[in-house]
Simulated scan of single mutants.
Amino acid sequence: MKTHLPLAIALGAAKLNTCKIEITGYTGQSITVAFSGLPANQPSTYKNFIAIWEASVIPWTVTPLRTIEIGVNTEDGTLTIDNLTITYNSYIVGYGVGSGVGNICASAILNAGGTKAPLSYVNIGIANLGQTSLSVHYQTLSGYLPKENGNWIGLWEGYVSPYNLPPDALIKKEVNSYANQGVIGLNNLSLGRDTEYTLIYFMGADNTTAAAILTFNTSDPTSEK
């Protein structure tokens, strides 16, 4: 009987890139944020934006207090949201990687009293790896609906940029769940040993709405020391 030896992630070979936003300062009339996008992202070209609500969790169906498009094509930068009235309530800012609130993939909270909460952002990871299948764990922001917003993931061999995708994806799959976190199975694959792969999570149909990139290399666990 033929035995299928398992695959594993090569030690030290996995790398995760995510989008993030952080509140770096505030006054009674403004909040300053630092944003960080994916490698090769062009925020101005791809309609990235920052939005703010007076809330502790993004109220997805409520119009933001302010929405400001990012006007520079640098992966990282800062932006000040002015013309606000900052009270002792909580405020949350979101970073969108495309036009529309459904593309927000990272957030930061200024709690009542001025304390900051831990950052939140779209995250992906490998739950299980086999020769012909891959289980992917995903997590989006609180209250977010992946299926409603057309989220999907894709897997490619080698290192791939979402902003210059090759046509030969190994697999693409929609996130067919309204849960803000879960596991997605990618089946009928043929994964090689000692091979690099790129897994990307997208917020919408456009490939420029990428929110997280995971690159990893497969290995034979029996050879690990």
Rank of each mutant, 00 (worst) to 15 (best):
V160M: 02
I171R: 03
L16A: 09
K225R: 11
T78Q: 15
Y88E: 14
Y144D: 02
A117V: 00
G12N: 11
T115E: 09
L145C: 07
T222D: 13
A117I: 00
T63I: 09
A8V: 02
K20F: 07
N217G: 12
L11D: 10
A117P: 00
T63W: 00
K47H: 06
T215C: 10
K147P: 00
T208C: 03
H137C: 04
A205S: 14
Y88I: 07
C105G: 08
P162D: 13
K2H: 14
L129V: 05
I86C: 03
W60D: 02
F35R: 05
Q42W: 05
A211I: 09
T45K: 09
N188P: 01
P166I: 15
W60V: 14
T80L: 01
V93S: 03
G28M: 10
P59K: 05
T209D: 00
N128W: 05
G77L: 04
I52D: 00
N41A: 13
I213L: 10
C105S: 15
V101F: 04
Y88M: 11
G114A: 11
I153E: 09
A40Y: 10
D194E: 10
F35M: 06
A40H: 10
N180A: 12
D76F: 14
R193E: 08
L84A: 11
D168S: 13
N73P: 06
V33R: 00
A212K: 04
I68T: 09
A127Y: 05
Y95W: 06
S44A: 13
L129C: 07
I50Q: 03
N83G: 06
T222P: 02
G25K: 07
N123C: 12
